[in-house]
Design a protein around this nucleic acid. Structure first.
Lengths: 336, 336
DNA sequence: CTGAAAGCGCTAACAA
DNA sequence: TTGTTAGCGCTTTCAG
């Protein structure tokens, strides 16, 4: 393995100069620099990055803690993170937790051992006290998920207002019995979407009927099952706001199996705007969550912290958008 | 930052002993070990992993080069890799190429600079000569994709035979005009699926009509467009084998828009068995590619190489399975 | 079973 | 603008 010293000797300069050529080229005279570069090329010298990491105790690597990479929403956020990281010369280390808290704690050690320069959490189930302690000492950003009562830098959308928008959309289309299939209610995000749903009803002088609120777990199956329950009601809903797109497909399938047409007999709105919602038949009206952008922004925030930039703002709320497709029936009205 | 020496002093042993306790506990007397462990705990000592990596010039990290993390197939393979890696104490560094060859070359440097112990490629567009050179020097495994004429360890399914199975399934259901929408034909994998399709026709004494073979790019849109073309034919097909599930949804939508029912008027078979194919309405009959398993196996193979195990076998072909759902019409027959 | 000691290859003061 | 030098914190011979 050819090392820095070999290059230095061959170029008749010191190691220090070679090091400078590599890391601060502008501090070296053009002639010297070019000579060194030529020798590097000639010897096919590859710097030992591990030695550099050790010496500088920084790694240009960040850790992304994700509950499940196989979930579209997370893989898209990850895409945004990777994109921004790569642009800034950072590398991304993947940490899948499978939703286990213990895993989150394990990965904390990577930070403590300085194996990574910072961490982006797409899931924060760990104790807030611990997390608070960690964020005081290391660069950390939270996205996708969020927490109350802790000033951790966060990138998210306004789940309350976007759920309100989704629900209002259904109300404006003339529905007064609008059901909501929630995500797992231990997630703040699900609670907020439920809150938005409630607000929309109240602001439009509609009663909140708890029988129309069913908890799902973001899976197709839960959408199907909860919708089946709702359809068995004496006064079933005529519209459903589903807390994500996958459950919305379950809702639609349940309705079809029950002999109903979507959107004619049942209007459905989803959430996330994953590819599925565009591909599905009928196309699913949904709230677009800017997943890629969220990842990108989270990475940018993390870099600011790593570079010691004073954080003036800690909560970044990105724009969301209601994407109108076929499942809500709005296009039906327009066409007539 | 408390370091190994601090622990050593406080425990009245040498650094060497502390190091041994950490890395080879069995070589240290029980008493000493426990004493050291207690001090480590007490001082909350965190080993400097960067120093270790440098010293040992190994990182317990592997690089995964993926064309696009946001693609379900790749994110599932990645899931399998991550799972196996984590189990063996390895970490996964993500390298998204966005399908650019230059990126692949860039990431090769990580290997050369020993920033990672090995590499799994989910995409190999680079020059075979270069790749051959690399695999001679470093642990490398290829999965998802594959190459001809190079003995690189590979984990894949038999795309020819599975495509044959898919096509035969349609033929057995009575179809004689079976179309095929291929993936991008510069991929060996797409060529092989096409080969399997051809074989099935020939073995069943059916002519291969080139007009029925249309190249897609794995996207919904290409499925839709190519199917629209096929439907405009004088003798349109009565069945379609689509090279992936996403295109199959496009095919089905095009058929519906043309006034046809699936599977009554058009039978469709997809490929991959991503979640979408189960959720879609109608459920899509498809070839299940064991994505998670492929990732897992690839990681295991890589570890063998890293640990210097002699590779006896270089090509691992995993089992695939035909999953019969609604889009092919087989269930229709059964029900009658 | 334990300790002493010699670096791993690079970076960053500091000096010139 | 360049060189000299002193480590970074750990692992690993080698000796005892």
């Amino acid at each position: 393995m050819v090392k820095m010293n070999d290059v230095a000797e061959k170029a008749n300069v010191s190691k220090a100069t070679v090091s400078r050529v590599l890391r601060n080229p502008e501090t070296v005279k053009k002639d010297t620099r070019e000579k060194v570069l030529a020798i590097i090329e000639q010897l096919n010298y590859q710097p030992n990055i591990l030695a550099r990491h050790f010496r500088r105790s920084e790694t240009n690597t960040i850790l992304v803690v994700v509950p499940n990479i196989m979930n579209t929403v997370f893989s898209h956020i990850l895409g945004g993170i990777e994109h921004a990281a790569c642009e800034k010369g950072y590398r991304v280390l993947l940490a899948n937790t499978n939703k286990q808290v213990e895993k989150e704690y394990e990965y904390l050690d990577h930070l403590k051992q300085r194996q990574v320069d910072g961490m982006i959490l797409l899931s924060a189930r760990m104790d807030k006290g611990v997390l608070g302690e960690v964020m005081r000492q290391y660069p950390v950003v939270l996205t996708a998920d969020y927490l109350e009562g802790i000033a951790i830098p966060t990138v998210s959308i306004d789940n309350v207002s976007s759920a309100r928008t989704a629900t209002e959309h259904l109300i404006k289309l003339g529905h007064s019995r609008v059901a909501h299939i929630t995500g797992p209610l231990h997630l703040l995000l699900s609670q907020d979407r439920l809150k938005g749903y409630r607000q929309a009803l109240l602001q439009n002088n509609l009663d909140v009927d708890n029988i129309l609120i069913q908890e799902g777990d973001f899976s197709y199956e839960s959408g199907y099952n909860q919708m089946t329950k709702l359809l068995a009601l004496e006064h079933p809903p005529t519209a459903v706001f589903s807390a994500n797109d996958e459950m919305a497909t379950g809702v639609i399938k349940a309705a079809k199996d029950y002999g109903l047409s979507v959107p004619e007999d049942l209007a459905v709105v989803g959430f996330d705007n994953i590819k599925l919602s565009a591909i599905y038949d009928p196309g699913i009206t949904t709230i677009a969550q800017p997943m890629f952008e969220m990842g990108k922004k989270a990475m940018e925030l993390l870099l600011e912290q790593i570079n010691g930039v004073e954080m003036t703002k800690r909560q970044y709320v990105l724009e969301n958008e209601l994407i109108i497709r076929d499942s809500c029936g709005a296009k039906l009205l327009k066409d007539n």
